[in-house]
């Protein structure tokens, strides 16, 4: 069963008098446990699509089914809850809280969870996550005291802390050198293979796309290839 399904999703920005249609009817589905690369030229609408997938934005028209729920009409607060519960984000520019320790950065999403979690429990889970991304010895470091790759690992730990169903990464290696990029991508692969986490990552780099088992191509707001899952072999 598909974790998410888009049906004829359009997104139109209104810029004054002019209407700018960025997504012109995107239909695609992603199954549980897939590792998907999203590729396309600059300005083709990748980030726009990711925002909709990540429930940060609403489609202008069309349907979006996430985890069996139609959510294109959800309110801002409902979408916030969905993001908290189901989705993890990794950004190109890390977006860590400055002057805040790695541990506290990782804890942060927990404070917005629905159920109350005790401080100890939070720290324990964050420590566990940081260990998983190989930063057990950097917990008390602030972002400014970490390298780019380490910062991105903290960001990944943060995105995983709420045990999301879907991890969205918009050009996660865009700000990293090739060797660190390789490490980060390796980490994504492991998460996907060992834990069955569904990951969608945006990239310009065909090398990066190689790590994925499936590549969706987008051109001028339309899917140009890879809209459907390739059947059984992608699902373990």
């Amino acid at each position: 069963m598909a974790l998410l399904e888009l049906h004829e999703v359009c997104k139109t920005y209104h810029l004054g008098e002019m209407d700018l249609q960025v997504l012109k009817g995107v239909t695609l589905s992603v199954a549980k446990g897939e590792l998907v690369a999203l590729m396309g030229a600059s300005g083709s609408g990748k980030s726009t699509l990711m925002n909709i997938l990540g429930c940060l934005d609403r489609p202008s028209s069309g349907e979006y089914w996430l985890d069996g729920q139609e959510i294109s009409g959800a309110s801002a607060d409902e979408r916030a809850r969905l993001r908290n519960r189901l989705i993890g984000f990794v950004f190109q520019s890390f977006n860590l809280l400055a002057r805040t320790s790695a541990l506290d950065n990782v804890c942060m999403p927990l404070t917005y969870g629905l159920e109350y979690i005790h401080e100890h429990e939070m720290k324990a889970r964050a420590t566990e996550m940081l260990r998983k991304v190989g930063l057990a010895d950097r917990m008390d470091h602030q972002p400014s005291q970490l390298s780019g790759g380490q910062q991105q690992r903290v960001a990944i730990a943060r995105s995983l802390i709420n045990r999301p169903r879907l991890l969205l990464a918009d050009e996660p290696t865009g700000n990293l050198d090739s060797r660190t990029s390789e490490e980060i991508l390796q980490m994504f692969r492991e998460l996907n293979e060992k834990e069955g986490l569904t990951i969608i990552l945006v990239t310009h780099d065909p090398e990066v796309a190689h790590h994925a088992k499936r590549t969706i191509r987008i051109r001028d707001g339309l899917i140009a290839g890879g809209a459907e899952s390739k059947g059984e072999e992608t699902q373990k």
């Binding site: 607060d77 993001r83 908290n84 984000f89 977006n95 917005y112 969870g113 995105s159 709420n162």
Partner: peptide, 16 residues
């Protein structure tokens, strides 16, 4: 602003 955006992205509601 970016921090606020991030907090919202990870699930903070406007009330939070």
């Amino acid at each position: 602003t970016r921090e606020i955006g991030l907090r919202m992205a990870v699930g903070a509601q406007s009330g939070d």
